[in-house]
Design a protein around this nucleic acid. Structure first.
Lengths: 161, 161
DNA sequence: GCTTAAAGTTTTAGACTTGAAGTTTTTCCG
DNA sequence: CGGAAAAACTTCAAGTCTAAAACTTTAAGC
C-alpha cells in the first residue's frame, strides 16, 4: 500500500489535483452551458435540450431511432421521448415507423426543422467561437488531445469491465 | 471582412475547431457527471445536486446565505431553495435567520450533515481519481491552465460588458 | 402453438431546473 | 421622515431529466 519512493504528500496531492481539475472542468462547462442556454432562450426562443436533439437529428439527416438518439445525447430514453414529443408538436421533427423492424421508430427533422436548425447552428457556432476566443489554436489542440485521452481511458475500462 | 492573409478555409477551421473542442468538452463532462451520479445513487443513495450543495456548505462551515449558495453553484435561487428544502427535511442542513438582516437566511450543515458529507467526499475523491487516472500530472497542469484561461476571458468580458 | 427472452418505446414518480412573480426587508435619496 | 428602488428569499408554472416499471413487438426454443 505505501510506497517509500512517494511520500504521502505527493500521492495525496495528485489525487487532490485531479479533483481540483475536475471541479474546474465542471465550472467552465456549466458557465458555458448557462451562457448558451441564455443565448438560445433570448435570441431563438428555444432550449439547450431541444438544440441538442435537433443537432443530433441534423447530423443524421436520414433519421435515427429513439435509442440511437438517447445514446448519442447521453440522456435517458424517456427523456428523449419527451423532447421529441415537443419538437413533433411544433412541427420540427417527425416520427416514422420502421418498415424492417416494427418495434423501432425513426425520427427525423421536418423541412421546417432543418431550416430552423441551420439558422440556429450558425449563430450557435459564432457564440461558441466568442465564448472560447481566449483559447489559441495550440490551446485547442492540447485541450482536445487531453480530453480525447480522458475519454479513451474510460471506454477502455467499460470494454474490459 | 475578408483577409487575404488568411484564406477562408483557415478562418472557418478555427471556428469549427472551437466548436468541436467545446462538443468534446461537453461530452467528457457529461460522461463524468453521469458516472458520478450513478456512483452517488448506488453507493450513497444521494444525488449530484445534493452532493454539490453539501460540498459548498462544507467548504463554508460557518454558514452561507441562499444567494451565496446559488451563485457558488451556478444555479438559480429557486433551485437552491428546493434542494436545501430537501436536505433540511432529511436533517442534513439547517436554516437560521440572520440577526443583522431579516431578509437573509444562513444555511449550514447539521452535525449529521457534516458527518455524512465527510464520508461521501472521501469516496467521491477516490472515484474522480479513478475516472481521470488516464491523465498524467503534466496533463492536469496543462488542462488546468487552459481552463483557467477560458474562465478568465469570460470574467473579463462580464466586467467590461 | 406456447413460453421465454430480447429489443425498443412509453409511462410513472420524483427530483431538478429555470425564469418570473410575489413577499418581506433594507437601502437610498429627496 | 417617507417613498422608490433594490435585495434576499420563496413560490409557482413549465420544462427537463432520471430510473424503474410497464408495455409492445419480434425472435428463439421447445
Amino acid at each position: 500500500m505505501t510506497d517509500p519512493a512517494k511520500p504521502d504528500a505527493t500521492r495525496s496531492s495528485l489525487s487532490k489535483r485531479r479533483l481540483k481539475t475536475w471541479i474546474r472542468l465542471l465550472g467552465v462547462t456549466r458557465r458555458a452551458e448557462n451562457h448558451l442556454r441564455e443565448f438560445l432562450r433570448v435570441n431563438h426562443d428555444t432550449t439547450l435540450p431541444r438544440f441538442d436533439v435537433m443537432a443530433a437529428l441534423w447530423r443524421r439527416r436520414d433519421g435515427m431511432t429513439m435509442t440511437e438518439l438517447s445514446r448519442a445525447l447521453l440522456v435517458s430514453n424517456g427523456n428523449a421521448t419527451a423532447v421529441v414529443d415537443r419538437l413533433e408538436k411544433d412541427g420540427l421533427a417527425r416520427r416514422t415507423p420502421s418498415v424492417s423492424d416494427r418495434r423501432t421508430i425513426h425520427v427525423a427533422l421536418t423541412d421546417e426543422g432543418l431550416r430552423q436548425f441551420e439558422g440556429l447552428a450558425a449563430d450557435h457556432e459564432r457564440e461558441v467561437d466568442a465564448l472560447f476566443a481566449g483559447l489559441s489554436d495550440a490551446d485547442l489542440e492540447s485541450l482536445s488531445d487531453i480530453l480525447r485521452r480522458a475519454l479513451e481511458k474510460r471506454e477502455t475500462e467499460r470494454d474490459s469491465g
